[in-house]
């Protein structure tokens, strides 16, 4: 198969989204300046979500200082095996560590992470271009999110019997096959002082997929947070992929409890997946919670040093 230099449709969509975001953000900034001499701009709503991630899915929140986070998922808890492997603690874990930094205050953040599954490096940019306002002049907040990840795992040896999906061209791994793009529009809204929801249409683009699958996966995610004390909250998120579904595909669901202080966020997580990066959650099979299979984990984040 020839190396194609033509960017495909999904790539164009991703780049178009970013350019659009840049234009929108610039216009919002310019308008805010010209208006500031006349009437004060409407106050943006704060505290829709506490952190830059709900559980796995990103939120509209832009971190306000250098941050360090650890996301950890224990092994799969099987029915009847909960105590033997101590709720998955004795089994292989998946873990991500990441550093985040606000490039432009309240607008743009970058995050660099390393995940053990697939020995994956990723860099994520989040651009916040629309803020919900106190007077409801703008009813929602909106943010664009792009995460480019690269597996650094050693490719397996390829035998002479292996071909591309055309069954004719001998198969070889290329460097670009390591890359996956994850693009998302995040829309969130704080409904009451304690309750917020978000939805996020998502495109995942894999340069290499198994024969019979599409390179692009379309996903709709939704999540919510309910604060039950000043610093503690219940979290939940769910997603549905519209294609690349096997017969046994389970839609990923995660729930959690969040405890936070001024500079820390700690979450205990119950999930159908041990994947942390969105590009894995919707392209790798999940455990079936209804059959008694699930994962336990935690997220820990420090913001500001």
């Amino acid at each position: 198969m020839k190396l194609s230099l033509n960017i495909n449709q999904s790539g164009r969509v991703g780049i178009a989204c970013l350019v659009l975001a840049a234009c929108m953000a610039s216009s919002v900034t310019v308008n805010a300046q010209s208006d500031s001499t006349k009437t004060p701009p409407p106050a943006p709503v704060s505290g829709t979500f506490r952190g830059p991630n709900l559980i796995n899915m990103p939120t509209c929140k832009i971190i306000d200082a250098l941050s360090f986070s650890i996301q950890h998922r224990f092994g799969e808890v099987l029915p009847g095996d909960q105590l033997n492997n101590f709720m998955g603690m004795d089994l292989g874990a998946n873990m991500r560590i990441a550093l985040g930094y606000p490039i432009i205050k309240d607008k743009l953040q970058v995050e660099i992470g390393r995940t053990s599954a697939g020995k994956t490096l990723d860099i994520a940019l989040k651009y916040h271009f629309l803020s919900q306002t106190e007077g409801n002049e703008m009813p929602v907040s909106a943010t664009l999110y792009a995460d480019i990840s690269m597996t650094t795992i050693k490719f397996p040896a390829v035998s002479s019997n292996e071909y591309y999906a055309d069954s004719v061209t001998p198969f070889t791994y290329k460097f670009a096959d390591r890359m996956v793009g994850y693009y998302q529009l995040i829309i969130d809204r704080k409904f009451t002082k304690n309750f917020s929801l978000e939805v996020a249409p998502t495109l995942i683009y894999q340069n290499l997929v198994a024969a019979g699958k599409d390179n692009q996966t379309y996903v709709l995610q939704a999540g919510g947070r309910y604060k039950f004390t000043k610093h503690d909250a219940l979290l939940a998120e769910y997603g549905y992929s519209f294609n690349n579904r096997d017969g046994s595909m389970v839609n990923p669901f995660s729930a959690g409890v969040e405890f936070s202080t001024a500079g820390h966020i700690f979450q205990i997580v119950f999930s159908s997946t041990n994947s942390i990066l969105g590009k894995d959650i919707y392209t790798v099979d999940n455990a079936n919670i209804l059959k008694g299979n699930y994962y336990i984990g935690f997220n820990l984040m420090r913001i500001g040093f």
Partner: peptide, 8 residues
Amino acid sequence: SSCEKDKG
């Protein structure tokens, strides 16, 4: 990250 469309 979206320059290939490989299957296999």
